[in-house]
Design a protein around this nucleic acid. Structure first.
Lengths: 78, 78
DNA sequence: TGGCCTATGTTTAGTCG
DNA sequence: CCGACTAAACATAGGCC
């Protein structure tokens, strides 16, 4: 993919790191969204890096008897 | 991607649904793993569908002073 | 930082075994 | 279900601004 195949190992060059991360983050977020829509799958995706703000994606099916589509306002342990 | 462009909308044909889901699930899991390795990013990915078992992927950086690489044995609210 | 570009590597729809 | 195959669509590395 791209001009050169990128070997899957930790990227140490910080300059390139952030730009690449942004591109790939967008890519996986798009995939997650497509998956949730295509297959009606509930998806939770959390990405936490040391160099940018964390990213959170969450999609859930609507549930009967719930006002907000089943999304909890606060985290719940059952 | 593939022979025919798949419009991103809910798939109703159950026969094709499961096979396609499996392929795409593998795809996004690979992406998640690559992301975590390349950028040293902590990743949580949870997929829950009505027609197969849920899938959970979690990767975290090792932390000093913790035995098991920072993975909580039980869910924790802070 | 982040958008745009393009060449090239990757993913996947459809099919068969 | 699983794996393999192919062609077409997609994602992205590197570069430029």
């Amino acid at each position: 993919m791209g001009r050169i195949k990128l070997k899957i190992q930790r990227l140490e060059i910080m300059k390139a790191r952030q730009a690449k991360y942004l591109k790939r983050k967008r890519g996986i977020l798009k995939k997650a969204k497509e998956l949730s829509i295509l297959f009606d799958v509930e998806v939770v995706l959390l990405l936490s890096s040391t160099f940018t703000k964390p990213t959170f994606f969450c999609w859930s099916r609507p549930r009967e008897g719930l006002y907000n589509g089943g999304m909890s306002r606060y985290p719940v342990l059952n």
